[in-house]
Amino acid sequence: MRFLSILALLIVVAAVGLGLWVRLAPSDPEVWNQMPETASKGARLSIDAGPDGLARLSAVAAATPRTSVLAGSVEAGMMTWVTRSKVMGFPDYTTAQQQGDVLTLWARQRFGEKDFGVNAARLAQWQSGLAQPQR
């Protein structure tokens, strides 16, 4: 019985440690604020957004819950945001780059192999937000 109590305690400690790592692990802007030619995971989207697409997208992203700017700026032509899941706080990174009128977005998860469609759904939501009239 004592063995099971110790095992249960170790499992709880490991789960808490993992939860803390997910929430507190630093995000290196050098690693995440980039736009590769091809992406092996996550979701990509290129749209004709006009010359102010990144500025408008920045406003859409700012209105997204649990989302903050990691790196970049509208003036630099590229930005990366971190969006955290509601319960566990898993970080997903979305990078957008403006080239002329074309806005390219790449959303990907940091942990795990599957994102269960969350990143593609965020890109669709942000694209929809871009289509809304600005107030």
Results as ranks from 00 to 15, higher is better:
3 F>W: 14
15 A>M: 13
28 D>L: 02
95 T>S: 08
15 A>P: 10
92 D>H: 04
47 I>T: 13
108 R>A: 00
65 P>R: 09
110 R>Y: 13
42 G>H: 01
121 A>D: 11
7 L>V: 15
115 D>W: 03
105 L>E: 06
117 G>C: 03
37 E>T: 12
74 V>M: 07
33 N>M: 12
91 P>M: 06
21 W>S: 11
95 T>A: 05
122 R>Q: 07
76 A>V: 06
38 T>M: 05
56 R>Q: 09
14 A>V: 11
72 G>E: 01
20 L>Q: 11
30 E>F: 06
42 G>I: 02
9 L>R: 07
87 V>R: 15
94 T>A: 07
17 G>L: 13
101 D>E: 13
13 V>P: 05
12 V>M: 09
123 L>E: 02
125 Q>Y: 12
59 A>V: 12
8 A>Q: 10
71 A>R: 10
94 T>Y: 01
56 R>C: 04
13 V>M: 10
46 S>N: 07
102 V>W: 02
2 R>K: 08
67 T>D: 00
16 V>I: 15
82 V>P: 04
113 E>S: 11
34 Q>P: 02
15 A>C: 13
128 S>F: 01
81 W>G: 06
1 M>P: 14
105 L>F: 05
62 A>T: 11
122 R>S: 00
90 F>C: 02
39 A>I: 03
12 V>P: 04
76 A>W: 07
62 A>L: 11
81 W>E: 03
129 G>Q: 00
64 T>L: 14
74 V>K: 03
85 S>M: 04
135 R>D: 14
